[in-house]
Amino acid sequence: MQFALNIGLQFHTPEEYFLGWKVAPFCLPAFDPRECTSTGRLYDPPSASLTSSRPEVIVAVGFPASGKSTFFQTHMIPKGYLQVSRDELGSWQNCVSKCREALRKGQSVVIDNTNPDPESRKRYVDVANAEGVPCRCFNFSLSLDQAKHNNRFREMVPSDVKHAKVNDMVFHSYK
């Protein structure tokens, strides 16, 4: 039914079409990508500077598949920020070490993990404080349904960005 909807075709079940049954009830998913627009603000407040000329740490917070990696690849990495990701480094300990190493070289860092709780975020705040650099948090706010949609989409579409497979248990545990 969703495929037919996406390409503008009428949809009928075999029972409806061949046996004349009444239209079967169907509920569309809560998230409808047709309602998304690209006219919204990229970040808030709009007067804020997205990047800094001085070293800093940016800690991402958001569901898996909320667009963190894509955002950083598009807006931060080209400006010289180092992307630190548990998907690539394997553990939070390795991420903290990589962050500290980059800051000591004078490089800004984006922490591209879900960072769902104060404890996980504090690790990077502490490193930033120890190295005397500011630390900001970028909150990627979207619904669970949209994150699941994004996850399914990235499973179907080839990409240069490597993503770990995410199942419902991971989404609900983050929530």
Rank of each mutant, 00 (worst) to 15 (best):
37 T>R: 11
140 F>E: 06
39 T>N: 09
81 Y>L: 04
77 I>A: 13
135 C>G: 03
148 K>Q: 14
57 V>K: 02
108 S>A: 08
131 E>L: 12
93 Q>R: 14
146 Q>M: 14
80 G>C: 04
120 S>C: 09
28 L>R: 14
11 F>E: 03
136 R>Q: 08
109 V>W: 02
13 T>Y: 08
79 K>G: 03
57 V>Q: 11
112 D>I: 09
50 L>G: 08
128 A>N: 01
42 L>T: 13
135 C>A: 12
149 H>K: 01
66 S>V: 00
68 K>E: 08
83 Q>W: 00
100 R>C: 08
36 C>H: 07
89 L>P: 10
79 K>W: 13
48 A>L: 07
97 S>W: 08
135 C>L: 08
21 W>Y: 14
28 L>G: 05
10 Q>K: 15
144 L>V: 05
125 V>T: 13
19 L>C: 13
111 I>K: 05
101 E>C: 03
65 A>H: 03
17 Y>L: 15
142 L>H: 01
114 T>C: 11
24 A>G: 07
77 I>R: 11
99 C>V: 04
28 L>E: 15
20 G>R: 12
115 N>L: 05
144 L>H: 03
51 T>G: 07
126 D>W: 00
53 S>A: 07
55 P>K: 12
32 D>L: 04
54 R>Q: 14
66 S>N: 05
52 S>W: 00
67 G>W: 00
72 F>L: 08
85 S>Q: 13
150 N>M: 04
70 T>C: 08
38 S>H: 10
64 P>T: 06
